[in-house]
């Protein structure tokens, strides 16, 4: 029989006491605001403390989902969010794995490259945005000059909505690739060297080694990365704000929440702050993340059980 690790009597309370700070912080930072957002979504809150606030039932949800052309624009933003999520997740995942495998080689300079690839992660969205705005400046910026060399030109973030949107995908991947790489790298380094040696002795090709050794044993990292990428890309909004601003045909749900909450949708610098409505929009976003996250996690857990036992 395994003894109780923390002893007997009052000492049995120790784990609960240890949990208190974490639970307290969770309630303070995560659960509390989430519950408050749910409550606000049923009001006409402006976010101004002391301003009159009324309980309006499901009006915000009705407006978001069914009122006029604005609701159809919201569905377009929702679809755009899914497109953004698909491209960011698949490319970031694939590229992250590739880069992790490259910097996992016993070659000179791998530490330098690990740092280089991870560096964007530590920069804030504003700095990331500034770097790319300068890099993609259409009137003589480095990328514009490069394109000019090949006889091409682009407006980058100021171009057509589809083009601007695609560039935000590029920046989002660049900004978060380091995290994906590091998680894969950690996974790769837990795979025992003997397995590779055994595979080599058996005459396995590089592809067979990857398919039968690396990929199955990376399952926990694959699961973590997929979930983080999906959730992270569904919630993305800062780069849209910094790189494009409020522009028709480019908004994703996360940015729509911000724009509605802080009066940036009508073009007037003095427009109303609709934080009750924004709260309803964020609940819709939350439900989207919840459904996609849960489905993904269920599928990944089943796969992990099948592979890892």
């Amino acid at each position: 029989m395994i003894g109780y690790h923390f002893g007997r009597g009052r000492a049995r309370l120790t784990p609960y006491l240890l949990l208190i700070p974490g639970i307290f912080l969770y309630i303070l930072i995560a659960l509390g605001p989430s519950l408050a957002t749910t409550v606000f979504s049923f009001t006409d809150a402006t976010g101004i403390r002391g301003a009159p606030m009324h309980w309006i039932g499901f009006d915000n949800y009705r407006e978001f989902l069914f009122l006029g052309q604005a609701s159809r624009d919201n569905y377009a933003a929702l679809w755009r969010t899914l497109v953004f999520c698909f491209f960011v997740t698949t490319i970031q995942f694939g590229l992250g794995l590739l880069v992790a495998m490259l910097v996992n080689q016993r070659l000179k300079g791998t530490n330098f490259f690990r740092t280089l690839y991870f560096m964007p992660v530590i920069l804030g969205a504003v700095i990331q945005g500034l770097i790319w705005s300068l890099f993609l400046y259409p009137l003589g910026g480095p990328m514009a000059r490069l394109l000019e060399f090949f006889g091409a030109r682009s407006e980058f973030f100021g171009g057509q909505p589809t083009e601007a949107f695609a560039w935000v995908i590029v920046v989002q991947i660049w900004a978060n690739l380091g995290t994906t790489m590091i998680i894969f790298l950690a996974g790769l380094q837990t795979i025992p060297e003997e397995l590779y040696e055994a595979a080599q002795i058996d005459g396995a090709s590089s592809w067979q080694v990857f398919k039968n050794v690396t990929w199955p044993l990376l399952t926990p990292s694959v699961n973590t990365n997929l979930l983080l990428n999906i959730i992270g890309s569904l919630q993305a909004w800062q780069l849209f704000l910094v790189l494009i601003g409020y522009r028709n045909g480019t908004q994703v749900l996360g940015y729509l929440v911000y724009a509605q909450g802080f009066g940036q949708t009508s073009g007037s610098v003095t427009s109303a702050f609709r934080q009750g409505y924004a709260a309803a929009a964020s609940i819709v976003l939350f439900l989207l993340v919840l459904v996609l996250g849960t489905v993904t996690q269920t599928i990944l857990n089943r796969r992990e059980k099948r592979i890892m036992g």
């Binding site: 407006e63 009122l67 006029g68 052309q69 604005a70 624009d73 009508s266 073009g267 427009s271």
Partner: peptide, 13 residues
């Protein structure tokens, strides 16, 4: 733009 207040439900254009 100094006078304008958009009706709720109006589209983005």
């Amino acid at each position: 733009e100094q006078y304008w207040v958009a009706p709720k439900g109006a589209g983005q254009y």
